[in-house]
Every structure is written in structure tokens, then in C-alpha cells.
Amino acid sequence: MEIKKQIEELVLNAKNEILTIKTMNELNDLKAKYLGKTSPFAQLMSQMKTLSNEEKPLFGQAVNEGKNQIASLFDGFRLELEQKAIEEKLKNEAVDVTLPGVNFSKGSKHLLSKTIEEIEDLFIGMGYSVKEGPEIESDLYNFEMLNLPKGHPARDMQDTFYITEETLLRTHTSPVQVRTMLEAGGKKPIKIICPGKVYRRDDDDLTHSHQFTQIEALVVDEDVTIADLKGTLLVLAQKMFGEERKIRLRPSYFPFTEPSVEVDVSCGQCGGKGCSMCKQTGWIEILGAGMVNNAVLEAAGYDSTKYQGFALGMGIERIAILKHGIDDIRAFYINDLRFNRQFK
């Protein structure tokens, strides 16, 4: 049939022409050329009326098929062009992802706060509450109720800043223990830790600071043992310094505990073999502890034939120094941001 050939030719021409197209406008022009009012198809359709009734459907069908073929050709190509345009746009939008991000100010928590929080969380997990108290204390709570009457030689162990004869800057957080025991009225069991600032009349140098931070723990109950103290210390050492660490207790003396011990943790650098860090001993002293002296329990209203307890106290700076290899205790109080920002 003549008409079929003619349409095939049109489709072929459209296919060839489409390949030369670059832009959407050209595509629209081409579409108008082939499918618009003056297109060859429009002309073909105008010939319809000259045909016989038998020929008309076949002719119409052939023309429509041709138109459809070209239309779908154009649609396909339109998608292709659109896709290309999107790709081009995205390509142009690409950024150098290696450029720096917005420089928000980098904040940090103080290393002492972080260390305190870490120790607090550890003890809270074991059922302790956190107790705080005043830093300006009475001689009574800081010393006398802790079995340290005036003139006691052990007062020399803690050189004190006095404000008046009877008030002072607390030398340890133990007065918080005293206050807690008094609040409990000598009846209830106690399981607390007391973090806070303390003060001693020391000259500041590499290892001394007139202000430092302590955490003390106190447990009072009917059956608290040295073994419980030892177990608690082991948990503390292993959580703070590493699961492989060991501890050992050595006899010591604090007026508020009896027996009193110094606690060593095995050296992390040499694993206990002896090195410069542990002065060849394999052990590093970390804190003092002991069983609460009955005199302290009784002064706070506890019946020492029924209740017993343990207490331990550590310097947070010392823990942080050992944990992070800090060589000067003053670094905690200078607040050089290059130091502070290392610990977030």
C-alpha cells in the first residue's frame, strides 16, 4: 500500500532528525513539524475525505499508528533530554566536600568534672547516693567529730587554712560524711559518696595544690566488712584503670578509720614488673581507706556494737594524672584551653 510506505518513510525521517537534536526547544519545533497542524500527518488526514468508505479505516489506522510511533519517539527522547538536563544541573551543583564544615565553637567539660562524673556513675551503679556539703566548715565537723581532737598529732597530716579558731576551709570531704550520719540519726544504713573541693595549706608545685578535689565514700551498715571494702576498691581500680589491674592494701593510719590502709593499684605501664613510673615497685598508690573508727560512729550517734562501716577517699587530680599521664597538678587550675579542650 502506497500510504504505508509513505508513513514508514515519515517515521524514518523523524528518527533520523531526532538524533541531531540537542535542546528541548529543537525537540518542540521538530514535534510541531511532524505532529502539528501543518505536519505531513495533518495533510494526510485531509486526504481522508477523498477515500472510499472501505479504505478510510485502514488509512486512518495507518496514519494514527505512524503518529503514535513518532509521538512515543519524541516522548522517549524528551525523557532522555530531561534526564540529561538534571544530570547536568547536579554536576554543576557539586561541592568540594573536603572543604571545612562550619566551625561551631568547640566546648568541653573540665577533666576533673568528667572524672568525678565517671566515678559518681560507677558508685551510683553500686547503690550509692551523692552527697555534697559546705566548703567553709567548722573545726568540729572537719576534725573533732572525726576523732581528731585539737592538738592531735595527726592534724599535721592536713595543714589547714583557718578562718577563725573554729572555722576553716575543709581539708577533706569527710565532714559531709559526719553531716550525713547525723542526719540519719544513728539509725539508718548509709551508702554515699562525697565529691567536692578541699583545701590544704600547701605551696603549689608539680604535685601539690592548695585547692584540690576529693571523692570520699562511706558505707555504714550492720555487716560491712574489710572484704567489702577490698571488693569495692577492686571494682573502682578496674573500672577506672582497666580490667587487668590488681590492687593491694598496705597498713596506714587515719584517725577516722581503724584499720586504715593505703591502696595501691598495679602499674599499668609495666603490668607490675617494675618501671620508672612505679619507681620499680610495680605498684602505684591511689588512695586511702579503712574501717570507720568506732569513735567516729559513736560521735555521730551510731551504736558501734551494731553498726560498722568503711570509708575511702581519693584525690581526683591524682586519679586523672595517673589515667591521662598529666605531669603537673597545676594544669587543672590554669585552664589553658589547649589543655582543657583535649578532654570533652
Binding site: M126, D221, D223, A227, G231, V261
Partner: peptide, 17 residues
């Protein structure tokens, strides 16, 4: 001191901030 075992206090008091 090495004779003494390691245990934890038995008292069950809840701890929190």
C-alpha cells in the same frame, strides 16, 4: 591483707543523683 577476700556490700540501697 592478701588473705582477705573481695566482696561487695550486701545492703541493697538504690543509688541515684
Amino acid at each position: 591483707y592478701e588473705l582477705i577476700p573481695t566482696t561487695l556490700p550486701k545492703s541493697a540501697i538504690p543509688g541515684s543523683l
